[in-house]
Simulated scan of single mutants.
Amino acid sequence: MEKFCQSCGMPMDQDPEKGGTNKDGTKNDMYCSYCYENGEFKDDFTEASQMVEFVKGKLAEKGMGKIKQSLYTSQIKKLKRWK
């Protein structure tokens, strides 16, 4: 089963660090290294919609069209961080 970051939705196998880090330095396999470091989220987002817009921007930077951006961000609101 493919695992996804429970904050941004990125496939964990695409994370170069293969997960964020907890306060004690151990790997966190729920959140990617782009979202989570030393036991804290790297962003100050309080709503899933903020993450959706951020991720859409990153995908656009990579040349991805609006349809794919919407497809890849459609599940963010259902992730554990945003429940």
Score class of each variant (00 low, 15 high):
residue 1 M to R: 06
residue 1 M to E: 05
residue 2 E to I: 11
residue 2 E to G: 08
residue 2 E to M: 14
residue 3 K to W: 02
residue 3 K to P: 01
residue 4 F to I: 15
residue 4 F to G: 02
residue 4 F to S: 06
residue 5 C to N: 05
residue 6 Q to A: 08
residue 7 S to K: 00
residue 8 C to L: 06
residue 8 C to Q: 07
residue 9 G to I: 09
residue 9 G to C: 10
residue 10 M to A: 14
residue 11 P to I: 14
residue 12 M to I: 11
residue 12 M to L: 15
residue 14 Q to D: 14
residue 15 D to V: 07
residue 15 D to H: 01
residue 15 D to C: 05
residue 16 P to R: 08
residue 16 P to C: 06
residue 17 E to M: 07
residue 18 K to H: 13
residue 19 G to T: 03
residue 19 G to S: 10
residue 19 G to Q: 06
residue 19 G to C: 03
residue 19 G to D: 10
residue 19 G to I: 08
residue 20 G to W: 03
residue 20 G to M: 03
residue 21 T to P: 09
residue 21 T to R: 06
residue 22 N to P: 03
residue 22 N to T: 02
residue 23 K to E: 13
residue 23 K to V: 11
residue 23 K to W: 02
residue 24 D to L: 01
residue 25 G to H: 05
residue 25 G to N: 09
residue 25 G to E: 06
residue 26 T to H: 10
residue 27 K to T: 10
residue 28 N to L: 11
residue 28 N to R: 05
residue 28 N to Y: 11
residue 30 M to S: 09
residue 31 Y to T: 00
residue 31 Y to D: 03
residue 31 Y to N: 02
residue 32 C to W: 03
residue 33 S to P: 03
residue 33 S to K: 04
residue 34 Y to E: 04
residue 34 Y to L: 07
residue 36 Y to A: 03
residue 36 Y to E: 09
residue 37 E to S: 10
residue 37 E to A: 15
residue 38 N to H: 14
residue 38 N to K: 15
residue 38 N to F: 12
residue 38 N to I: 01
residue 39 G to Y: 02
residue 39 G to K: 05
residue 39 G to V: 12
residue 39 G to Q: 11
residue 40 E to P: 07
residue 40 E to Y: 04
residue 42 K to D: 00
residue 43 D to W: 12
residue 43 D to A: 09
residue 44 D to A: 02
residue 45 F to P: 02
residue 46 T to C: 00
residue 46 T to G: 00
residue 47 E to M: 06
residue 47 E to R: 08
residue 47 E to V: 01
residue 47 E to T: 10
residue 49 S to K: 15
residue 49 S to D: 14
residue 50 Q to Y: 01
residue 50 Q to R: 00
residue 53 E to I: 07
residue 54 F to N: 00
residue 55 V to M: 10
residue 55 V to T: 00
residue 55 V to S: 00
residue 56 K to E: 02
residue 57 G to C: 05
residue 57 G to H: 09
residue 58 K to P: 00
residue 59 L to P: 04
residue 60 A to D: 07
residue 61 E to T: 06
residue 61 E to Y: 08
residue 61 E to N: 09
residue 62 K to S: 15
residue 62 K to Q: 15
residue 63 G to Q: 12
residue 63 G to F: 10
residue 63 G to M: 04
residue 65 G to V: 08
residue 65 G to C: 07
residue 66 K to E: 14
residue 67 I to E: 15
residue 67 I to Y: 15
residue 69 Q to K: 01
residue 70 S to K: 14
residue 71 L to H: 13
residue 72 Y to Q: 15
residue 72 Y to F: 12
residue 73 T to Y: 04
residue 73 T to R: 11
residue 73 T to K: 14
residue 73 T to V: 04
residue 73 T to F: 13
residue 74 S to M: 13
residue 75 Q to H: 15
residue 76 I to T: 13
residue 76 I to F: 07
residue 76 I to D: 11
residue 76 I to W: 12
residue 77 K to Q: 15
residue 78 K to D: 15
residue 79 L to F: 14
residue 80 K to C: 00
residue 81 R to T: 13
residue 82 W to Q: 11
residue 82 W to M: 09
residue 82 W to A: 12
residue 83 K to G: 14
